[in-house]
Nucleic acid binder design. Structure first.
Lengths: 258, 258
DNA sequence: CGTTATCTTGACGTACATCAAATGTCGTGG
DNA sequence: CCACGACATTTGATGTACGTCAAGATAACG
């Protein structure tokens, strides 16, 4: 089935570059060395089978602002983010943008039913990724059901997150959206209470606005109002301190008061 | 969204035979007899293994308005819709509702990473479903990687649909949302042009509003305005005729002009 | 340090929500 | 078949949260 399912593959990328071998280090092992083994797909692979994964992957660095996945382009690769952050987004013909998510270390990208990507991805800051050619990956999935199982878990998690975001976009006020965003950024969920959690936001106000379905101005105004209400503190535009996660949780509309 | 994306991304199995043998009384074959075999999970199961699936499933009918999946409840079952329509939704503490999708025949429900459901589901009209106890299903998935593979495809499709809906909720106007909704309901995608397509909407204005992140009034007003613009015709509240899919596509912001 | 992009703040406009009432739909029983 | 009631939908009048436009303030950067 896995074999017959494979859709119209485009010939292997002629541009496929060799794995950069780092002499002196134990092994040229993008998966083992990338530092996110515990959070990513590799999770499901036995040590002895890791070599197979290593053969598949090529590591790559991506500069801020570079679009490395383009909606509608043929889906020829999977990506595993190992450092940095990407914004995933969709555009309307007139340029309006909706950011559907941010992908940080450990995130798996490029899962596509059809032959082409359903969204675009662009580096927010400096990124490192592992690239997996799709045909090889498909074969690997076929050989290692455990990996596919893990992928299904990941997809189910993404789906739940997407539903949560639909709730935010369809029904929450600006204040609730921003509070939800801040709390979500502070994963894992912080227990309710006046703890002091520092938060770094690598993305711009524009990104946040396009993620929350708002404008830059509204995001800014909402943040300053949260600050005036002593719920957060701002140390520069991209450094936020959560002063009262209990209150923030209430505002965000979390039904699990933790 | 639910029910609108294409599951037929891969070529039909040439070996797939029609449903066997219905002698006299209906055979106790929820999967084979439910009439949606081609669109659902069973798709991935060989005929000879179908018996295993049959053992798993129990069929059930659900009355309009009954909540058969409750958010946060332990996810003890999977569901396969065989007839009727369900609304999937999430609630905020104060009762605001976001419908994340509608699940029609062939739709698979209850995919959950964690121990509990991430959304609620309620019957819109009279429904028939197959229920699969989770533990047994998990074992089946383990034994039949092809089924799990199919599930991954389904999940990936749902994910793409969810992203499309985020774009709608975050960035589209009321008019664009309603146009998108109508076109999505008319799956498979209609070629651009002044075709005449009749459409039945089993859900209420309230459902549509909560799905599109609007109010009942705005949905109603938008529909009457589309009617005034000769883009649609209304035959009763739940019967819509698309008069100009080309224009509607343009309004919906479909980048694929078809 | 100037230059430029990003962020914040302010004044005002608008698309959609809210509140309210009229109209339509449909099931039920006379 | 029609009358009635309950509810869904449409239509209208008005309010408001957020968007738009515009100008400063702050941070980023060579």
């Amino acid at each position: 089935m896995a074999g017959t399912y494979q859709l119209n593959q485009h010939p292997a990328r002629p541009t496929a570059r060799p794995i950069p071998i780092v002499l002196g280090l134990p092994v040229p092992e993008p998966c083992g060395s990338c530092g996110v083994r515990h959070m990513s797909l590799c999770h499901a692979v036995e040590d002895k089978d890791l070599a197979r994964l290593v053969d598949l992957a090529t590591t790559d660095t991506i500069r801020p602002g570079r679009v490395f996945i383009q909606e509608h382009d043929p889906a020829i690769e999977f990506f595993n983010v190992t450092s940095g952050t990407a914004r995933l987004f969709k555009l309307l013909p007139d340029g309006r943008r909706q950011i559907t998510g941010f992908a940080g270390p450990g995130h798996f990208l490029g899962l596509a039913v059809g032959p082409s990507y359903s969204f675009s991805a662009e580096a927010v800051d400096d990124m490192k990724v592992c690239r997996f050619p799709r045909p090889k990956m498909v074969r690997l999935l076929h050989d290692f059901p455990a990996v596919e199982h893990r992928l299904l878990e990941v997809a189910a998690g993404e789906l739940a997150a997407a539903q949560e975001q639909m709730l935010l976009l369809g029904r929450k006020t600006a204040r609730e959206r921003v509070a939800s965003f801040l709390l979500a950024r502070a994963a894992p969920p912080i227990p309710c209470g006046p703890t002091e959690t520092r938060l770094h936001l690598p993305m711009s106000r524009s990104d946040i606005a396009d993620y929350l379905g708002l404008t830059i101005e509204t995001v800014s105004r909402t943040l300053t109002r949260l600050k005036a209400d002593r719920l957060i503190e701002l140390h520069g535009p991209s450094e936020v301190e959560l002063l009262d996660t209990c209150q923030l949780n209430a505002i965000a509309g979390a039904e699990f008061a933790v």
